[in-house]
Design a protein around this nucleic acid. Structure first.
Length: 236
DNA sequence: AATCGCAACAACCGCAGGGAC
DNA sequence: GGTCCCTGCGGTTGTTGCGAT
């Protein structure tokens, strides 16, 4: 029988107060992250460790990037979701300052609907046949010529049959000018000695000084965002 | 001004993975 | 190899804010 993650009695639930936030920030600033189970007691918080961890990771961390998602970020989320599915932590790992929870919420509240309006099944990224799509959705980013809505379908992912199928279908011809699912897969490269794929910053431009890696890597380009991650992680 | 409905976001819950013993 | 414990992930629910009526 698994022990509960915390003593349900005597622990606060629901929204965090400023006082609680400050206690958590103070403690982690002094002692660092980790030992979430023991943290609440040590920090004088009446919360379970899980709640503390979530609050820190999703809200209090100093490197959190708040505010609206940029067009490049939207684009990248959609492309990564086509490749990875609901692997929110992996997707968020490619978006500096964004959390899995934030990406997940943004997907569920914005991007899903956007794809549905465009006649695309958000679960498999296939274009739904016999379904009228909403042209008005194309006005979301009226000044952007490289967002998900404009440009062209151009899927090169050799291991992404679904995406390729969606791109190549004759029935989808008319959509080609609406959706940009440009997936550029290349291998194998490394970025200097940056083999620690967690937390490494996204490259703003195509990386220079590429060197062969021992293991295959896949690169997904999204306009001016470039990122890499091992295929073992992608297709585990 | 009140209230209703919906969207967006924050937080919770259960489960799985992995390390330590 | 088995068990326990901690951590992280993803699905889901709860709460809040805002626009419509």
């Amino acid at each position: 029988m698994r022990k509960p993650c915390c003593d349900k009695d005597g622990t606060n639930k629901g929204a965090w107060s400023k006082h609680e936030d400050q206690k958590l920030i103070d403690y982690i600033t002094t002692h660092g992250e980790g030992c979430w189970r023991s943290l609440p007691k040590a920090a004088g918080l009446h919360r379970c460790g899980k709640s503390c961890r979530l609050r820190w990771i999703n809200y209090l961390r100093p490197d959190i990037k708040r505010g609206n998602f940029g067009e490049d970020e939207e684009d990248l989320i959609i492309k990564l979701h086509a490749l990875l599915g609901n692997r929110w932590s992996l997707i968020a790992g490619r978006l500096p300052g964004r959390t899995d929870n934030e990406v997940k919420n943004y997907w569920n509240s914005h991007l899903r609907k956007k794809l549905i309006n465009l006649g695309i099944d958000p679960n498999n990224h296939k274009v739904n046949q016999n379904q009228n799509y909403d042209h008005s959705a194309t006005t979301t980013h009226p000044h952007n010529s490289h967002n998900i809505i404009s440009g062209s379908i151009n899927a090169h992912a050799s291991n992404s049959d679904e995406t390729s199928a969606a791109a190549s279908s004759d029935n989808n011809h008319n959509r080609k000018h609406l959706i940009n699912l440009d997936l550029t897969i290349a291998f194998p490269y490394s970025h200097h000695n940056d083999h620690h794929h967690d937390h490494h910053p996204l490259k703003e431009t195509e990386p220079q000084n590429k060197e062969p890696l021992n293991s295959m890597e896949m690169e997904v380009s999204s306009n001016n965002i470039y990122t890499t991650f091992p295929t073992l992680i992608l297709f585990r």
